[in-house]
Simulated assay, not measured.
Amino acid sequence: METKEFNFKGFKISGFLMLFLMLVMLAGIVWLYSSLEVWGIITGIVLTVVWIILFVGYAKLEPNEAVVMIFFGKYKGVLKENGFFWVNPFMTKKKLSLRARNLNVDPIKVNDKVGNPVLIGLVLVWKLRDTYKAMFEIDAQTMAASRPGKDGAVAYTVSKQMDAFENFVAVQSDAALRQVAGLYAYDNNVVSDTELTLRSGGEEINDDLLKELNSRLEMAGIEIIEARINYLAYAPEIAAVMLRRQQAEAIISAREKIVEGAVTMVKMALERIEDESIVELDGDKKAAMVSNLLVVLCADESAQPVLNTGTLYQ
C-alpha cells in the first residue's frame, strides 16, 4: 500500500543555538523592565509573550523516535533526525516511538479445522513502520486521548499513544489467530499424517500467522517482526477425553511393538528347536508352545511357571 509519509522540510535550527538566543532575549527583557519607562515596560511585556511562545518550539529526539508535525491541522511531515531542535512553535508535535515492542496475547478458545475447541496463545514483536498511517489512517489519537492519566487528567502522552496502538494490535492479533487456527486441525488423530497441523506445523504455522497479521496491520502502518504460538492445548471440556484417547493410542502402539517382537521371538525359538533337533514337535504341540510363549511374552505381569511332566512327550 502506498504511503503518504515524508520527511519534515520546514524551518528548524539547533536547539542549543535557539536556547542561547532566548537567554540573550531574556536578558534584554529584564533590562527593559528595569528601565522603569512606560515604553520599556510595554515592550518588555510584548517580548515576554513572544519569549513564552518561542519556548514551546523545542523538540528532543532520541534514537528510534519520531515527531509528526501538524500545522493547524495540516500534515507537514515527520522528523526522525536525532538531536535537540527548535521548530515553528505553532507546529503541533506528536511524538511516537519506533522501537520494537512485545505483546503476549493470552490464550483464547478457538475451534480448529475439525471443530475441536482448543486454547491457543500468541507472542509477537511489533513496531511502527509508517507514522502517517499510524496517526491518520486509524483513530489512534482519539483512543489515546480517552485514556486518563494517573492523576485522572486526559491529555496526549507518548505512552498513552503507544498503548492505543498496542490495543489495536491486540484486537487484530486475536482475529488473525482465530483465522489461522481454524485452517488446521490440532493434531493428526483426525486427519492424514501428511497434513499440516497446529502441533506439527511449527515454523510454517508461524509464517502463516505472520503474513496474516502483517496483512491486517498494514493499514495502521504497523509491522510485525516476529509472531509465534506459545501456548497450545485442548479446551478443558474435552481435555480429559483427549488425554484418554492419547493414552489408548500409546497403549495400542506399545502392544503392537510387543506383539511384533513376541512373534519374532517365537519364530526364532521354533526354528532353533527344529534346526538343532532338540525335540520332535507336531502341529498341536507347536500350537501349544506358540500359545504359551505368546502369553508369557505379551503379558503385563510375570507368568507363573507350570512344570509339564509328560504331556509334551506323550
Rank of each mutant, 00 (worst) to 15 (best):
M1D: 13
T3D: 06
T3P: 08
T3Y: 05
F11H: 09
K12H: 13
S14P: 04
M25V: 03
Y33T: 06
S34C: 04
L36P: 01
V38G: 10
W39T: 12
I41C: 08
I42N: 07
V46K: 07
L47S: 10
L47C: 03
T48Q: 07
W51V: 02
I52K: 01
F55N: 12
F55A: 14
G57H: 08
E62M: 05
E65I: 00
A66N: 05
V68G: 11
V68I: 13
M69H: 09
F71T: 04
K74T: 11
K74M: 12
K76A: 12
G77Y: 09
G77Q: 11
L79D: 11
G83Q: 12
G83N: 12
M91C: 14
K93G: 07
K93F: 02
R101M: 15
K113E: 12
N116G: 00
L122K: 03
V123N: 11
L124A: 13
V125S: 13
L128S: 07
L128F: 02
D130K: 03
K133Q: 07
A134W: 02
E137W: 00
E137A: 15
A140D: 09
Q141E: 15
M143V: 14
M143R: 13
A144N: 03
A145K: 15
K150F: 06
V158E: 15
V158C: 06
D163F: 02
V171T: 08
A175Y: 11
A181Q: 05
L183V: 02
V190L: 06
V191E: 10
S192R: 07
G201P: 05
G202M: 02
E204T: 08
I205H: 01
L209S: 03
E212L: 01
N214P: 06
S215W: 06
R216E: 04
M219V: 09
I222C: 09
R228I: 09
N230L: 03
A233T: 09
Y234M: 13
P236M: 02
I238C: 08
A239R: 09
L243S: 10
R245D: 11
Q246R: 11
A250E: 08
I251Y: 02
I252K: 11
S253N: 14
A254K: 12
K267V: 01
M268P: 00
E271R: 10
E271Q: 14
R272W: 07
D275A: 15
E280N: 05
G283C: 00
A287Y: 05
L294H: 10
V295D: 09
A299H: 09
T309E: 15
T309R: 12
G310T: 07
T311V: 10
T311A: 14
L312G: 10
